[in-house]
Amino acid sequence: MPDSPVIQTFELSKQFREVRAVDRVSIAVERGQVFGFLGPNGSGKTTTIGMLMGIITPTAGSFALFGASDAKGHLAARARVGATLETPNFYPYMSGRDNLRVAATIKDVGSDRIDECLEIVGLAGRGRHRFRTYSLGMKQRLALAATMLNDPELVILDEPANGLDPQGMKEVRDIIRILADRGKTIFLSSHLLWEVERMCTHVAIVRKGQVMKVGTVAEIVSEQVRALVRVEDTGALEAALADYPDATGVQTTDEGTVVSLKSDDLAGLNRYLAARGIYVSHLARHQQTLEDAFIELTQGDYGSMTEIAS
């Protein structure tokens, strides 16, 4: 089925006792997309991926992988997928190479491919060492090597840069870029919004198990015209904006006051404020970032803002 989305979910849901971890998620990932799946901790990202990978049984809804929507089809479709969930999952007493041999046997891939993948992720020299002796960065790279073994059409990565130092993050990013350049479809769950914004073509933002917004990165971040305003008396500004008919929202940030507008008539806003005796020291169009959109959509769910900004 060449025209089918690589991943398609239909009202996919998962209930863990009282907790609805995933709530009627419907998304479609087309071939060649680098799809970012974003959400705070506990928003259902890993559970959704777990259902796609057959390790968690959905409570309701369904999904299709490469157009296949039954259990037998899912199993066959998983042969075209390379995926890793949360932390790298390997046998600690076995070498990196033997761990890849297990994965290669499951995927029915020859051992020459193991060497190639170890080479790509820079672990050729450590392949014979036990997994338990690897640093976190090496473990993540081994997980990436495992996902690449079968030269998959779809790569699913759940927080691949978790716990990595900046150099490790760059290495992971480079590997993802290589995969994307080779035309692979990539489904990436991450906290690192600036990473996602730089790498992904499409994004879904999830909150409490529900998809809040889905679309291209451009669609997510630029639907609303915003102005960044700096004045001496913020209180007077906010009072004045409360009556401004073109304003749809006001948000105070460290940078200044961000005003959401119905149109991009910044001159009109300036005239309105001046007429009320409020003279701005700074007035400029404010480009919303993915981080802004994410915070807006998941407001209140995030404990640590540094995690987003890091």
Binding site: G54, I55, L75, R78, T84, L85, Y91, I106, K107, A146
Partner: peptide, 15 residues
């Protein structure tokens, strides 16, 4: 505990 059973399924085995 090692979550390798989970990874085996992700890699292509059925439960």
């Amino acid at each position: 505990g090692w979550k390798t059973a989970r990874q085996n399924v992700i890699d292509g085995l059925a439960k």
